[in-house]
Design a protein around this nucleic acid. Structure first.
Lengths: 173, 173
DNA sequence: TATATTTGTAAGTGATTACTCACTATTTGG
DNA sequence: CCAAATAGTGAGTAATCACTTACAAATATA
């Protein structure tokens, strides 16, 4: 991967996440990346291909986030790590996850199967803790964490700690 | 409001909700509405003004949705009505609410204050039911209902009933 | 009925779009 | 060290964009 190709990718990521895919022109991307517009099309088939290249990183970044939780055995610790996950996302990856959530509305990029193994892990944890309906309990917590993640991506972490403590207390972890 | 103006509004709503604001051209709107493109600009200042006209209906539609819940006094019934709300949205209003959620990512159209009175009503209900932290409990349920609403708007109501029953049982309403 | 206002159309406008092409600079492999 | 491949540029391209203008049809008001 050449230096300028990386510059194109990161410029595109920021602009897509801030302004949206369609509102971002290839000329703006080239300008922000400090390259000629033509170079974008030497490295990527078209504008959509540039987006696909960015979105293609989703799986590895998901793994990065979830690996610690997947390796944990203690069910209470698993729930705790999941609740703290939205707060553990690095500032430098904010644009990436924002774009991820924005594009969920386009069915092309909406793939709930990717999260399935993590949801299963949480369901097992709930089962071990004696919850009556562990799968629904996992789905329930997933929805809370998703909403919380979105609001953190939109407004920042400030003032959300109280809610995190509330959740940890509610699940007694 | 003339007939063709209404046609423009509903054509724009559907296209904005399906393809996004920037991906929808005024010529496509005119084509779908069966009018000349120029008529759009006689009735609205510009394309953004057309979107604003659609978004301007948000308050009255929110009232429509929440009024029954706001008039209820029984706290258990209040929680129940809130949980059932995502399932009570008419099919004909799906595009409208989808657009509402999509545009939450654009700060211009993100206004959490509008939901404040409804959140307060739920917090009061939780307080009456003896919950320790009624405000956080209300925020918690709000996040679940928001995630649930989004998934229903994206995938439909099918297969979500079990989760609704799970929630009603969890809150004993 | 006469006139003024509103509703509507069709054919434009310049600007911007995603993308291509001809060309040069740089890097790589035998 | 030379040739082939790759990286990079800048000036194009046709198509599409949001929007305007000149004019006609319909409607309201007097």
């Amino acid at each position: 991967m050449t230096d300028k190709k990386e510059k194109i990718l990161s410029a595109a990521l920021e602009l897509f996440a801030n302004d949206g895919f369609n509102a971002t022109s290839t000329s703006k991307i080239a300008q922000k990346a400090g390259v000629s517009e033509g170079l974008i099309f030497r490295h990527f088939d078209n504008k959509k291909g540039l987006l696909n290249a960015i979105m293609g990183e989703a799986e590895s970044r998901l793994m990065e986030l979830f690996t610690p939780m997947m390796q944990e055995e203690n069910p209470k610790k698993i729930i705790e790590m999941y609740i703290e996950m939205p707060f553990s996302v690095d500032e430098s990856q904010r644009s990436f996850w924002k774009l991820q959530f924005m594009l969920k509305w386009q069915e092309e990029y909406y793939n709930p199967d990717k999260l399935k193994p993590f949801l299963d892990k949480i369901a097992i944890a709930f089962k071990e803790l004696g919850f009556k309906k562990p799968e629904l309990e996992a789905k329930h917590l997933e929805q809370v964490i998703e909403s919380l993640s979105i609001s953190i991506l939109r407004e920042g972490k400030e003032g959300k700690e109280a809610f995190k403590e509330f959740l940890l207390e509610k699940y007694n972890v």
